[in-house]
């Protein structure tokens, strides 16, 4: 690979619980990836525009508030509209099992629920880069 894997870690919605997003950002960085952390309360438009600008390989969405069914479809649609659907989207946070199939159908590569190790996420990204 000619360059390190680039990951945008984003916190969409109104939720301010950023412990997970920050830990993941740091773990990916320690694993040699280039990480851009957006900070809080990003709209889908802001996230996709940052992904475009930063030329990332992955977008990691951290959502703990239950708003994933409203936010993820908008992100996926905007990726398509901007012709960057090759950017892989992973979701981390509190997502009920029942919602996972529909997120995957929309093109989400993986959903990581509470208790997932940093190592598992790093491995997944490396294997799918």
């Amino acid at each position: 690979m000619s360059r390190p894997i680039r990951v945008l870690v984003a916190k969409p919605g109104l939720d301010g619980h950023d412990r997970g997003a920050k830990v993941i950002a740091r773990a990916l960085r320690d694993a040699g990836m280039e990480v851009i952390y957006t900070g809080l309360r990003q709209t889908p438009e802001m996230i996709v525009s940052a992904a475009l600008q930063e030329d990332v390989d992955f977008i990691g969405l951290s959502i703990l508030s239950g708003a994933h069914n409203a936010i993820v479809p908008r992100v996926m649609k905007l990726l398509k509209e901007n012709s960057i659907e090759d950017v892989k989207v992973i979701v981390g946070g509190i997502v009920p099992d029942a919602d996972i199939p529909s997120l995957k159908e929309q093109g989400v590569s993986a959903v990581f629920q509470p208790g997932t190790s940093m190592e598992e996420i790093v491995r997944f990204i490396r294997e799918h880069a």
Binding site: G13, L14, D15, S65, G66, A67, H68, N69, A70, I71
Partner: peptide, 8 residues
């Protein structure tokens, strides 16, 4: 507020 009303 989209997607967040009454959730948390």
């Amino acid at each position: 507020a989209a997607g967040e009303v009454g959730k948390c």
